[in-house]
Design a binder for these strands. Structure first.
Lengths: 246, 246
DNA sequence: GAAAACTGTGTCTGGCGGACACCGTTCGTT
DNA sequence: AACGAACGGTGTCCGCCAGACACAGTTTTC
Protein backbone atom coordinates (compact mmCIF):
# COMPACT_ATOMS: atom_id res chain seq x y z
CA UNK A 1 0.00 0.00 0.00
CA UNK A 2 2.97 2.27 0.36
CA UNK A 3 6.06 1.47 -1.63
CA UNK A 4 6.04 1.93 -5.35
CA UNK A 5 9.07 -0.24 -5.89
CA UNK A 6 10.68 -3.01 -3.93
CA UNK A 7 9.36 -6.49 -4.40
CA UNK A 8 6.06 -7.77 -5.62
CA UNK A 9 4.26 -10.86 -4.48
CA UNK A 10 6.54 -12.99 -6.61
CA UNK A 11 9.66 -11.72 -4.87
CA UNK A 12 8.14 -12.35 -1.49
CA UNK A 13 7.20 -15.86 -2.50
CA UNK A 14 10.71 -16.57 -3.75
CA UNK A 15 12.15 -15.32 -0.49
CA UNK A 16 9.80 -17.34 1.69
CA UNK A 17 9.85 -20.54 -0.30
CA UNK A 18 13.51 -20.79 -1.20
CA UNK A 19 15.46 -22.42 -2.71
CA UNK A 20 18.10 -19.79 -1.83
CA UNK A 21 20.78 -20.97 -4.24
CA UNK A 22 24.02 -19.47 -3.09
CA UNK A 23 26.44 -17.84 -5.48
CA UNK A 24 30.02 -18.93 -5.15
CA UNK A 25 31.89 -15.81 -6.10
CA UNK A 26 32.45 -12.81 -3.95
CA UNK A 27 32.78 -12.45 -0.19
CA UNK A 28 30.80 -14.71 2.06
CA UNK A 29 27.68 -13.06 3.36
CA UNK A 30 28.16 -12.04 6.96
CA UNK A 31 24.45 -11.92 7.69
CA UNK A 32 21.59 -14.28 6.97
CA UNK A 33 17.88 -14.04 6.47
CA UNK A 34 17.47 -15.95 9.69
CA UNK A 35 19.53 -13.52 11.75
CA UNK A 36 17.86 -10.50 10.18
CA UNK A 37 14.39 -11.88 10.84
CA UNK A 38 15.30 -12.68 14.44
CA UNK A 39 16.58 -9.18 14.99
CA UNK A 40 13.37 -7.75 13.63
CA UNK A 41 11.32 -10.03 15.86
CA UNK A 42 13.35 -8.99 18.87
CA UNK A 43 12.56 -5.35 18.24
CA UNK A 44 8.91 -5.98 17.43
CA UNK A 45 8.40 -8.12 20.52
CA UNK A 46 9.85 -5.41 22.71
CA UNK A 47 8.49 -2.23 21.13
CA UNK A 48 5.91 -3.19 18.56
CA UNK A 49 5.98 -3.43 14.82
CA UNK A 50 6.13 0.33 14.48
CA UNK A 51 9.59 0.34 16.02
CA UNK A 52 10.93 -2.01 13.36
CA UNK A 53 12.86 -0.03 10.79
CA UNK A 54 15.78 -0.84 8.59
CA UNK A 55 17.95 1.36 10.74
CA UNK A 56 16.95 -0.31 13.97
CA UNK A 57 17.32 -3.83 12.66
CA UNK A 58 20.67 -3.08 11.08
CA UNK A 59 21.83 -1.29 14.19
CA UNK A 60 20.94 -4.25 16.38
CA UNK A 61 23.15 -6.40 14.17
CA UNK A 62 25.91 -3.79 14.11
CA UNK A 63 25.58 -3.22 10.40
CA UNK A 64 24.42 -0.34 8.28
CA UNK A 65 20.94 -0.01 6.95
CA UNK A 66 21.83 -0.48 3.32
CA UNK A 67 23.56 -3.77 3.89
CA UNK A 68 20.20 -5.30 4.72
CA UNK A 69 19.04 -4.56 1.19
CA UNK A 70 21.59 -7.10 -0.02
CA UNK A 71 19.42 -9.74 1.61
CA UNK A 72 15.92 -8.35 1.52
CA UNK A 73 14.29 -6.40 -1.33
CA UNK A 74 12.37 -4.12 1.00
CA UNK A 75 10.67 -3.75 4.30
CA UNK A 76 7.55 -5.65 3.32
CA UNK A 77 9.63 -8.73 2.63
CA UNK A 78 11.43 -8.33 5.93
CA UNK A 79 8.12 -8.32 7.75
CA UNK A 80 7.03 -11.39 5.81
CA UNK A 81 10.19 -13.15 6.93
CA UNK A 82 9.55 -12.09 10.50
CA UNK A 83 6.05 -13.50 10.39
CA UNK A 84 7.25 -16.78 8.99
CA UNK A 85 10.02 -17.04 11.56
CA UNK A 86 7.70 -16.19 14.44
CA UNK A 87 5.26 -18.95 13.65
CA UNK A 88 6.46 -22.13 15.19
CA UNK A 89 5.97 -25.30 13.28
CA UNK A 90 2.78 -26.84 14.61
CA UNK A 91 3.59 -29.94 16.61
CA UNK A 92 1.39 -32.92 16.08
CA UNK A 93 -1.27 -33.06 18.75
CA UNK A 94 -3.34 -35.97 19.95
CA UNK A 95 -2.22 -38.28 17.16
CA UNK A 96 -4.61 -41.12 17.79
CA UNK A 97 -7.02 -40.65 20.63
CA UNK A 98 -9.85 -43.15 20.44
CA UNK A 99 -13.07 -41.21 20.51
CA UNK A 100 -15.12 -42.54 23.34
CA UNK A 101 -18.73 -41.59 23.73
CA UNK A 102 -17.86 -38.98 26.31
CA UNK A 103 -14.96 -37.20 24.68
CA UNK A 104 -15.49 -35.04 21.61
CA UNK A 105 -14.66 -36.47 18.20
CA UNK A 106 -11.06 -36.37 17.04
CA UNK A 107 -11.51 -33.53 14.56
CA UNK A 108 -12.91 -31.33 17.29
CA UNK A 109 -10.10 -31.97 19.72
CA UNK A 110 -7.56 -31.40 17.00
CA UNK A 111 -9.12 -28.16 15.87
CA UNK A 112 -9.36 -26.98 19.43
CA UNK A 113 -5.70 -27.69 20.02
CA UNK A 114 -4.67 -26.01 16.78
CA UNK A 115 -6.64 -22.92 17.68
CA UNK A 116 -5.05 -22.76 21.11
CA UNK A 117 -1.65 -23.16 19.60
CA UNK A 118 -2.28 -20.33 17.18
CA UNK A 119 -3.52 -18.17 20.02
CA UNK A 120 -0.34 -18.91 21.95
CA UNK A 121 1.76 -17.84 18.99
CA UNK A 122 -0.16 -14.62 18.59
CA UNK A 123 0.09 -14.00 22.29
CA UNK A 124 3.85 -14.43 22.23
CA UNK A 125 4.21 -11.96 19.37
CA UNK A 126 1.59 -9.27 19.83
CA UNK A 127 2.63 -7.54 16.60
CA UNK A 128 1.57 -10.47 14.45
CA UNK A 129 -1.92 -9.09 13.87
CA UNK A 130 -0.42 -5.87 12.55
CA UNK A 131 1.93 -7.76 10.29
CA UNK A 132 -0.68 -10.03 8.77
CA UNK A 133 -3.20 -7.54 7.47
CA UNK A 134 -4.46 -7.80 3.96
CA UNK A 135 -4.04 -10.42 1.29
CA UNK A 136 -0.49 -11.62 1.13
CA UNK A 137 1.70 -14.56 0.31
CA UNK A 138 1.64 -17.20 3.00
CA UNK A 139 4.84 -18.88 4.07
CA UNK A 140 5.44 -22.60 4.50
CA UNK A 141 4.76 -22.58 8.21
CA UNK A 142 1.56 -20.64 7.86
CA UNK A 143 0.43 -23.05 5.21
CA UNK A 144 1.48 -25.87 7.51
CA UNK A 145 -1.03 -24.74 10.08
CA UNK A 146 -3.72 -24.53 7.43
CA UNK A 147 -2.79 -28.00 6.25
CA UNK A 148 -3.29 -29.47 9.68
CA UNK A 149 -6.70 -27.90 10.04
CA UNK A 150 -7.85 -29.15 6.66
CA UNK A 151 -6.38 -32.57 7.34
CA UNK A 152 -8.15 -32.74 10.69
CA UNK A 153 -11.44 -32.33 8.86
CA UNK A 154 -10.77 -35.31 6.63
CA UNK A 155 -13.55 -37.81 6.73
CA UNK A 156 -16.13 -35.43 8.10
CA UNK A 157 -18.05 -35.16 4.87
CA UNK A 158 -17.13 -31.54 4.35
CA UNK A 159 -16.10 -30.50 0.87
CA UNK A 160 -12.69 -29.04 0.09
CA UNK A 161 -13.81 -25.42 0.01
CA UNK A 162 -15.81 -25.94 3.16
CA UNK A 163 -12.74 -27.22 4.97
CA UNK A 164 -10.78 -24.24 3.77
CA UNK A 165 -13.51 -21.90 4.92
CA UNK A 166 -13.54 -23.61 8.29
CA UNK A 167 -9.83 -23.03 8.67
CA UNK A 168 -10.22 -19.40 7.73
CA UNK A 169 -13.07 -19.04 10.18
CA UNK A 170 -11.01 -20.51 12.96
CA UNK A 171 -7.92 -18.46 12.21
CA UNK A 172 -9.94 -15.28 11.90
CA UNK A 173 -11.48 -15.76 15.30
CA UNK A 174 -8.18 -16.42 17.02
CA UNK A 175 -6.65 -13.42 15.30
CA UNK A 176 -9.53 -11.18 16.17
CA UNK A 177 -9.54 -12.13 19.84
CA UNK A 178 -5.84 -12.07 20.53
CA UNK A 179 -5.64 -8.75 18.77
CA UNK A 180 -8.09 -7.21 21.15
CA UNK A 181 -6.60 -8.86 24.19
CA UNK A 182 -2.98 -8.04 23.58
CA UNK A 183 -1.05 -6.49 26.38
CA UNK A 184 -0.19 -2.85 26.61
CA UNK A 185 2.32 -1.74 24.07
CA UNK A 186 4.90 1.00 24.42
CA UNK A 187 3.26 4.33 25.11
CA UNK A 188 -0.11 2.67 25.18
CA UNK A 189 -2.52 2.55 28.03
CA UNK A 190 -3.12 -0.91 29.40
CA UNK A 191 -6.19 -2.62 28.13
CA UNK A 192 -8.00 -2.28 31.40
CA UNK A 193 -7.83 1.47 31.16
CA UNK A 194 -9.28 1.39 27.67
CA UNK A 195 -12.01 -0.92 28.86
CA UNK A 196 -12.80 1.36 31.75
CA UNK A 197 -12.92 4.32 29.42
CA UNK A 198 -15.33 2.54 27.09
CA UNK A 199 -17.41 1.36 30.00
CA UNK A 200 -17.64 4.90 31.25
CA UNK A 201 -18.76 6.09 27.84
CA UNK A 202 -21.45 3.45 27.62
CA UNK A 203 -22.77 4.29 31.07
CA UNK A 204 -22.69 7.97 30.23
CA UNK A 205 -24.79 7.38 27.15
CA UNK A 206 -26.86 4.57 28.60
CA UNK A 207 -29.94 5.96 26.90
CA UNK A 208 -28.45 5.23 23.51
CA UNK A 209 -27.01 1.86 24.43
CA UNK A 210 -29.39 0.24 26.88
CA UNK A 211 -28.57 -3.33 25.94
CA UNK A 212 -24.85 -2.68 26.12
CA UNK A 213 -25.15 -0.94 29.45
CA UNK A 214 -27.08 -3.87 30.84
CA UNK A 215 -24.70 -6.42 29.42
CA UNK A 216 -21.64 -4.68 30.78
CA UNK A 217 -22.86 -4.35 34.34
CA UNK A 218 -22.77 -8.09 34.73
CA UNK A 219 -19.22 -8.11 33.53
CA UNK A 220 -16.71 -9.40 36.00
CA UNK A 221 -13.57 -10.08 34.09
CA UNK A 222 -14.72 -13.20 32.32
CA UNK A 223 -11.92 -13.16 29.76
CA UNK A 224 -13.46 -16.09 27.99
CA UNK A 225 -13.94 -14.56 24.56
CA UNK A 226 -11.50 -16.91 22.88
CA UNK A 227 -12.99 -20.06 24.33
CA UNK A 228 -16.53 -18.86 23.88
CA UNK A 229 -16.15 -18.15 20.18
CA UNK A 230 -14.13 -21.27 19.69
CA UNK A 231 -16.81 -23.48 21.19
CA UNK A 232 -19.48 -21.73 19.15
CA UNK A 233 -17.57 -22.30 15.94
CA UNK A 234 -16.90 -25.92 16.78
CA UNK A 235 -20.55 -26.42 17.69
CA UNK A 236 -21.53 -24.94 14.36
CA UNK A 237 -19.17 -27.20 12.51
CA UNK A 238 -20.44 -30.17 14.45
CA UNK A 239 -23.97 -29.31 13.44
CA UNK A 240 -23.01 -29.17 9.79
CA UNK A 241 -21.06 -32.42 10.00
CA UNK A 242 -23.95 -34.14 11.70
CA UNK A 243 -26.31 -32.90 9.01
CA UNK A 244 -23.99 -34.22 6.33
CA UNK A 245 -23.40 -37.65 7.75
CA UNK A 246 -26.87 -38.28 9.04
CA UNK B 1 2.71 2.27 18.03
CA UNK B 2 4.65 5.08 16.50
CA UNK B 3 4.16 8.55 17.84
CA UNK B 4 5.57 9.47 21.17
CA UNK B 5 3.32 12.44 21.59
CA UNK B 6 0.01 13.47 20.14
CA UNK B 7 -3.12 12.36 21.90
CA UNK B 8 -3.84 9.46 24.14
CA UNK B 9 -6.99 7.42 24.35
CA UNK B 10 -8.66 10.16 26.32
CA UNK B 11 -8.11 12.71 23.58
CA UNK B 12 -9.47 10.34 21.00
CA UNK B 13 -12.53 9.67 23.12
CA UNK B 14 -13.16 13.37 23.57
CA UNK B 15 -12.90 13.90 19.84
CA UNK B 16 -15.20 11.03 18.95
CA UNK B 17 -17.80 11.60 21.62
CA UNK B 18 -18.07 15.35 21.62
CA UNK B 19 -19.44 17.58 22.93
CA UNK B 20 -17.37 19.93 20.73
CA UNK B 21 -18.13 23.11 22.57
CA UNK B 22 -17.22 25.93 20.26
CA UNK B 23 -15.24 28.91 21.44
CA UNK B 24 -16.67 32.28 20.55
CA UNK B 25 -13.60 34.37 20.13
CA UNK B 26 -11.29 34.39 17.17
CA UNK B 27 -11.93 33.70 13.51
CA UNK B 28 -14.51 31.15 12.52
CA UNK B 29 -12.94 27.83 11.68
CA UNK B 30 -12.90 27.32 7.95
CA UNK B 31 -12.66 23.56 8.19
CA UNK B 32 -14.52 20.99 10.21
CA UNK B 33 -13.86 17.54 11.55
CA UNK B 34 -16.47 16.26 9.16
CA UNK B 35 -14.80 17.72 6.08
CA UNK B 36 -11.37 16.56 7.16
CA UNK B 37 -12.58 13.04 7.81
CA UNK B 38 -14.35 12.95 4.45
CA UNK B 39 -11.22 14.05 2.66
CA UNK B 40 -9.25 11.33 4.37
CA UNK B 41 -11.84 8.75 3.44
CA UNK B 42 -11.76 9.89 -0.16
CA UNK B 43 -8.03 9.32 -0.34
CA UNK B 44 -8.15 6.03 1.53
CA UNK B 45 -10.94 4.70 -0.65
CA UNK B 46 -8.99 5.52 -3.78
CA UNK B 47 -5.43 4.66 -2.80
CA UNK B 48 -5.50 2.85 0.49
CA UNK B 49 -4.80 3.93 4.03
CA UNK B 50 -1.10 4.21 3.32
CA UNK B 51 -1.75 7.12 0.99
CA UNK B 52 -3.43 9.11 3.74
CA UNK B 53 -1.03 11.65 5.12
CA UNK B 54 -1.53 15.06 6.61
CA UNK B 55 -0.10 16.57 3.48
CA UNK B 56 -2.44 14.73 1.18
CA UNK B 57 -5.53 15.41 3.24
CA UNK B 58 -4.67 19.08 3.64
CA UNK B 59 -3.84 19.37 -0.03
CA UNK B 60 -7.16 17.90 -1.03
CA UNK B 61 -8.85 20.59 1.02
CA UNK B 62 -6.55 23.31 -0.32
CA UNK B 63 -5.03 23.99 3.06
CA UNK B 64 -1.62 23.47 4.55
CA UNK B 65 -0.69 20.47 6.60
CA UNK B 66 -0.29 22.32 9.85
CA UNK B 67 -3.76 23.78 9.76
CA UNK B 68 -5.16 20.30 10.27
CA UNK B 69 -3.47 20.16 13.64
CA UNK B 70 -5.82 22.92 14.76
CA UNK B 71 -8.61 20.36 14.53
CA UNK B 72 -6.95 17.03 15.15
CA UNK B 73 -4.23 16.25 17.71
CA UNK B 74 -2.49 13.78 15.43
CA UNK B 75 -2.84 11.28 12.69
CA UNK B 76 -4.16 8.51 14.91
CA UNK B 77 -7.13 10.67 15.83
CA UNK B 78 -7.71 11.52 12.20
CA UNK B 79 -7.91 7.86 11.35
CA UNK B 80 -10.29 7.29 14.25
CA UNK B 81 -12.51 10.03 12.86
CA UNK B 82 -12.35 8.47 9.43
CA UNK B 83 -13.41 5.12 10.80
CA UNK B 84 -16.29 6.64 12.67
CA UNK B 85 -17.43 8.61 9.63
CA UNK B 86 -17.15 5.61 7.32
CA UNK B 87 -19.42 3.46 9.41
CA UNK B 88 -22.97 4.21 8.51
CA UNK B 89 -25.52 4.21 11.24
CA UNK B 90 -27.08 0.76 11.20
CA UNK B 91 -30.64 0.98 9.96
CA UNK B 92 -33.21 -1.02 11.83
CA UNK B 93 -33.83 -4.29 10.06
CA UNK B 94 -36.80 -6.62 10.27
CA UNK B 95 -38.37 -4.83 13.20
CA UNK B 96 -41.05 -7.36 13.97
CA UNK B 97 -41.15 -10.43 11.82
CA UNK B 98 -43.26 -13.12 13.39
CA UNK B 99 -41.16 -16.23 13.57
CA UNK B 100 -43.03 -18.95 11.84
CA UNK B 101 -41.92 -22.52 12.13
CA UNK B 102 -40.14 -22.32 8.81
CA UNK B 103 -38.23 -19.08 9.12
CA UNK B 104 -35.33 -18.80 11.55
CA UNK B 105 -35.89 -17.08 14.90
CA UNK B 106 -35.81 -13.32 15.05
CA UNK B 107 -32.40 -13.06 16.71
CA UNK B 108 -30.85 -15.13 13.95
CA UNK B 109 -32.31 -13.06 11.15
CA UNK B 110 -31.26 -9.89 12.88
CA UNK B 111 -27.71 -11.04 13.47
CA UNK B 112 -27.48 -12.23 9.91
CA UNK B 113 -28.61 -8.87 8.61
CA UNK B 114 -26.26 -7.00 10.92
CA UNK B 115 -23.34 -9.08 9.75
CA UNK B 116 -24.20 -8.49 6.12
CA UNK B 117 -24.47 -4.82 6.75
CA UNK B 118 -21.07 -4.73 8.42
CA UNK B 119 -19.60 -6.67 5.52
CA UNK B 120 -21.07 -4.13 3.11
CA UNK B 121 -19.44 -1.31 5.04
CA UNK B 122 -16.07 -3.03 5.05
CA UNK B 123 -16.45 -3.78 1.38
CA UNK B 124 -17.14 -0.15 0.58
CA UNK B 125 -14.05 0.98 2.50
CA UNK B 126 -11.37 -1.66 2.05
CA UNK B 127 -8.97 0.21 4.31
CA UNK B 128 -11.16 -0.25 7.37
CA UNK B 129 -9.43 -3.46 8.43
CA UNK B 130 -6.10 -1.63 8.42
CA UNK B 131 -7.53 1.22 10.41
CA UNK B 132 -9.13 -0.90 13.11
CA UNK B 133 -6.20 -2.98 14.30
CA UNK B 134 -5.47 -3.26 17.95
CA UNK B 135 -7.34 -2.11 21.03
CA UNK B 136 -8.74 1.34 20.57
CA UNK B 137 -11.54 3.65 21.56
CA UNK B 138 -14.77 2.82 19.77
CA UNK B 139 -16.91 5.60 18.39
CA UNK B 140 -20.64 6.03 18.84
CA UNK B 141 -21.50 4.39 15.55
CA UNK B 142 -19.30 1.41 16.19
CA UNK B 143 -20.87 1.04 19.59
CA UNK B 144 -24.25 1.39 17.93
CA UNK B 145 -23.62 -1.68 15.85
CA UNK B 146 -22.55 -3.56 18.97
CA UNK B 147 -25.66 -2.38 20.75
CA UNK B 148 -27.90 -3.81 18.06
CA UNK B 149 -26.20 -7.16 18.19
CA UNK B 150 -26.46 -7.39 21.96
CA UNK B 151 -30.04 -6.19 21.85
CA UNK B 152 -30.91 -8.79 19.24
CA UNK B 153 -29.79 -11.47 21.68
CA UNK B 154 -32.18 -10.27 24.36
CA UNK B 155 -34.39 -13.00 25.64
CA UNK B 156 -32.20 -15.82 24.40
CA UNK B 157 -30.99 -16.81 27.81
CA UNK B 158 -27.43 -15.75 27.09
CA UNK B 159 -25.61 -13.82 29.79
CA UNK B 160 -24.29 -10.33 29.28
CA UNK B 161 -20.68 -11.34 28.68
CA UNK B 162 -21.83 -14.09 26.38
CA UNK B 163 -23.75 -11.63 24.27
CA UNK B 164 -20.73 -9.37 24.08
CA UNK B 165 -18.55 -12.30 23.09
CA UNK B 166 -21.06 -13.23 20.42
CA UNK B 167 -20.89 -9.76 18.96
CA UNK B 168 -17.12 -9.84 18.97
CA UNK B 169 -17.16 -13.24 17.33
CA UNK B 170 -19.46 -12.01 14.60
CA UNK B 171 -17.55 -8.82 13.97
CA UNK B 172 -14.25 -10.65 13.94
CA UNK B 173 -15.45 -13.04 11.30
CA UNK B 174 -16.76 -10.32 9.04
CA UNK B 175 -13.57 -8.37 9.45
CA UNK B 176 -11.38 -11.34 8.77
CA UNK B 177 -13.23 -12.35 5.63
CA UNK B 178 -13.62 -8.98 4.00
CA UNK B 179 -10.00 -8.29 4.71
CA UNK B 180 -8.93 -11.27 2.69
CA UNK B 181 -11.43 -10.68 -0.06
CA UNK B 182 -10.82 -7.02 -0.63
CA UNK B 183 -10.20 -5.93 -4.16
CA UNK B 184 -6.83 -5.10 -5.57
CA UNK B 185 -5.34 -1.94 -4.20
CA UNK B 186 -3.04 0.49 -5.97
CA UNK B 187 0.13 -1.22 -7.08
CA UNK B 188 -1.16 -4.51 -5.80
CA UNK B 189 -1.76 -7.60 -7.75
CA UNK B 190 -5.39 -8.58 -7.97
CA UNK B 191 -6.45 -11.20 -5.53
CA UNK B 192 -6.81 -13.84 -8.19
CA UNK B 193 -3.13 -13.56 -8.99
CA UNK B 194 -2.22 -14.03 -5.37
CA UNK B 195 -4.53 -16.99 -5.16
CA UNK B 196 -3.01 -18.50 -8.25
CA UNK B 197 0.46 -17.98 -6.83
CA UNK B 198 -0.49 -19.68 -3.59
CA UNK B 199 -2.21 -22.49 -5.44
CA UNK B 200 0.92 -23.01 -7.48
CA UNK B 201 3.02 -23.16 -4.35
CA UNK B 202 0.75 -25.73 -2.76
CA UNK B 203 0.77 -27.92 -5.85
CA UNK B 204 4.52 -27.56 -6.08
CA UNK B 205 4.92 -28.79 -2.53
CA UNK B 206 2.01 -31.18 -2.61
CA UNK B 207 4.02 -33.69 -0.60
CA UNK B 208 4.09 -31.35 2.37
CA UNK B 209 0.47 -30.23 2.04
CA UNK B 210 -1.51 -33.20 0.79
CA UNK B 211 -4.78 -32.20 2.41
CA UNK B 212 -4.51 -28.64 1.14
CA UNK B 213 -3.65 -29.80 -2.35
CA UNK B 214 -6.67 -32.07 -2.38
CA UNK B 215 -8.96 -29.42 -0.97
CA UNK B 216 -7.87 -26.80 -3.46
CA UNK B 217 -8.36 -28.90 -6.56
CA UNK B 218 -12.08 -29.00 -5.94
CA UNK B 219 -12.08 -25.26 -5.70
CA UNK B 220 -14.16 -23.53 -8.30
CA UNK B 221 -14.59 -20.01 -7.15
CA UNK B 222 -17.06 -20.67 -4.42
CA UNK B 223 -16.57 -17.30 -2.75
CA UNK B 224 -18.81 -18.32 0.09
CA UNK B 225 -16.42 -17.88 2.97
CA UNK B 226 -18.45 -15.10 4.56
CA UNK B 227 -21.76 -16.96 4.42
CA UNK B 228 -20.20 -20.24 5.43
CA UNK B 229 -18.60 -18.88 8.56
CA UNK B 230 -21.65 -16.83 9.36
CA UNK B 231 -23.95 -19.83 9.23
CA UNK B 232 -21.55 -21.87 11.32
CA UNK B 233 -21.43 -19.16 13.97
CA UNK B 234 -25.18 -18.78 14.00
CA UNK B 235 -25.60 -22.55 14.22
CA UNK B 236 -23.23 -22.59 17.14
CA UNK B 237 -25.13 -19.83 18.88
CA UNK B 238 -28.40 -21.61 18.18
CA UNK B 239 -27.02 -24.74 19.79
CA UNK B 240 -26.05 -22.85 22.91
CA UNK B 241 -29.39 -21.06 23.08
CA UNK B 242 -31.25 -24.32 22.68
CA UNK B 243 -29.19 -25.86 25.45
CA UNK B 244 -29.96 -22.91 27.71
CA UNK B 245 -33.68 -22.77 27.15
CA UNK B 246 -34.27 -26.49 27.00
C1' DG C 1 -9.74 51.21 21.57
C1' DA C 2 -7.15 47.43 23.55
C1' DA C 3 -6.31 43.01 25.00
C1' DA C 4 -7.37 38.26 24.68
C1' DA C 5 -8.40 34.22 22.05
C1' DC C 6 -8.38 31.84 18.13
C1' DT C 7 -7.12 30.32 13.14
C1' DG C 8 -3.93 29.50 9.55
C1' DT C 9 1.03 29.39 8.04
C1' DG C 10 6.35 28.91 7.42
C1' DT C 11 10.14 26.87 9.05
C1' DC C 12 12.60 23.34 11.26
C1' DT C 13 13.87 18.69 13.15
C1' DG C 14 14.40 13.79 13.31
C1' DG C 15 13.24 9.66 11.19
C1' DC C 16 11.66 6.80 7.52
C1' DG C 17 12.25 3.71 2.95
C1' DG C 18 14.86 3.40 -0.80
C1' DA C 19 18.08 4.61 -5.27
C1' DC C 20 22.65 4.76 -6.66
C1' DA C 21 27.53 4.95 -7.11
C1' DC C 22 31.42 3.23 -5.10
C1' DC C 23 35.05 0.34 -2.76
C1' DG C 24 37.32 -3.84 -1.44
C1' DT C 25 37.03 -8.74 -1.22
C1' DT C 26 36.76 -13.21 -3.22
C1' DC C 27 36.64 -16.76 -6.53
C1' DG C 28 36.47 -19.07 -11.32
C1' DT C 29 38.89 -18.86 -15.32
C1' DT C 30 42.78 -18.63 -18.17
C1' DA D 1 49.99 -16.97 -10.77
C1' DA D 2 47.25 -13.25 -12.62
C1' DC D 3 43.15 -11.23 -14.01
C1' DG D 4 38.39 -9.89 -14.31
C1' DA D 5 33.71 -10.76 -13.03
C1' DA D 6 30.66 -11.27 -9.31
C1' DC D 7 29.40 -10.00 -4.95
C1' DG D 8 29.00 -7.86 0.00
C1' DG D 9 29.10 -3.65 2.62
C1' DT D 10 28.97 1.49 2.78
C1' DG D 11 28.20 6.68 2.17
C1' DT D 12 25.51 9.90 0.18
C1' DC D 13 21.47 11.55 -1.57
C1' DC D 14 16.35 12.16 -2.30
C1' DG D 15 11.52 12.60 -1.21
C1' DC D 16 8.20 11.91 2.17
C1' DC D 17 6.43 11.61 6.72
C1' DA D 18 4.64 13.37 11.64
C1' DG D 19 5.06 16.84 14.50
C1' DA D 20 7.16 21.22 17.40
C1' DC D 21 7.21 25.95 17.53
C1' DA D 22 7.00 30.75 16.69
C1' DC D 23 4.43 34.08 14.32
C1' DA D 24 0.98 36.86 11.72
C1' DG D 25 -3.75 37.91 10.89
C1' DT D 26 -8.57 37.97 12.41
C1' DT D 27 -12.44 38.25 15.46
C1' DT D 28 -14.69 38.82 19.82
C1' DT D 29 -15.10 40.61 24.54
C1' DC D 30 -14.13 43.98 28.02
Amino acid sequence: MSSTSGGGAGDTARLLWGPHQKPTRGPKPALSLERIARAGIEIADAEGLGAVSMQRVAGLLDYTKMSLYRYVPGKAELVALMVEAAIDEPARVTPATPATEESPPAWRMELHALARQLADTFGAHPWLPDATVGPRVLGPKELGWLERVVAALDGTGLTGPERMDSAVLLAGHVRSITEQARAAGPGRQPESELLALLGGLVQEHADRFPALAAAMTAQDGHDQALEFGLERILDGLAALIARRSG
